[in-house]
Nucleic acid binder design. Structure first.
Lengths: 132, 132
DNA sequence: GATCAAATGAGAATGGTTGTCAACTCGGAC
DNA sequence: GTCCGAGTTGACAACCATTCTCATTTGATC
């Protein structure tokens, strides 16, 4: 559950660099931005490697992934809380929301139908106060 | 709010065809799938036009857009029918589920943040009994 | 040090999506 | 009905995030 947990990944210079870079910001960044950041830090890491590493980290649950409105994947070090997004249809303004009720509900629905390893995706759309 | 509302779009054959096609399914489909569906229906509509039309409809709030896990945009007619899908990660088996609790929760969360015209998309993923 | 699977990087390939632009259409003016 | 201009279309090129390929390098183990 912690970030020092073994993930089955070899601790190469490149992976350490990516993990380090992830610690240096708290918002969502694209793979390309992270690659650029590494360059600025003097860490030479191939773009493909950045993509691969971020993917692995995401699979291992070490980072959160999100899709921007135009389909770009953005990453952020894993905040401890699972949450959803309330997105403005018009300007894209996003609010992170939590819902224990939803978590419980999805789990019970899945169990009811015999589904295992449950996860879910929930997005709420609306028009934000500024746009309406 | 209704689908007969003027959207500032000229009612061309192609747009009518896309809107019609959107009425023929209730789940999220990609632009390419919708384009293919139009072809099967004997409606000749260019792919670019399908993309443009869906974009316009989304802007006008006539359809909901969502990004799949791999960044593809998927569209669904904006409907009041509130059911969600419990999808098997392995074989794709889908169960439709309803959740008044979720409907209520999303509405209240949105209201809390001042968001209007609320809709939402929820998919639950798991491994079905047959696959686990 | 020898060995081998895992990891890397450069560049090519992929594929969804958007841009381009000449041809076409719709709706209003006449 | 005809004309006109702006909106729309479609074929195809361009774009660009992401993934693939594969020869080379690296880390862990013996």
């Amino acid at each position: 559950m912690t970030s020092t947990e073994p993930t089955g990944m070899r601790p190469t210079r490149q992976r350490r660099a990516v993990v380090d870079a992830m610690e240096s910001f708290a918002d969502f960044r694209s793979a390309q931005e992270i690659h650029e950041l590494l360059g600025e830090r003097g860490e030479q890491v191939g773009l493909a490697t950045v993509y691969r590493t971020l993917q692995r980290l995401a699979e291992a649950g070490e980072v959160d992934v999100l899709r921007t409105e135009d389909g770009e994947a953005v990453y952020r070090r894993c905040s401890e809380s699972h949450h959803h997004h309330l997105v403005c249809r018009s300007c894209g303004a996003t609010v992170e929301v939590e819902g224990p009720a939803v978590e419980r509900w999805t789990r019970s629905i899945a169990a009811e139908h015999g589904y295992a390893d449950v996860s879910h995706a929930l997005e709420i759309f609306g028009t934000c106060p500024r746009c309406s």
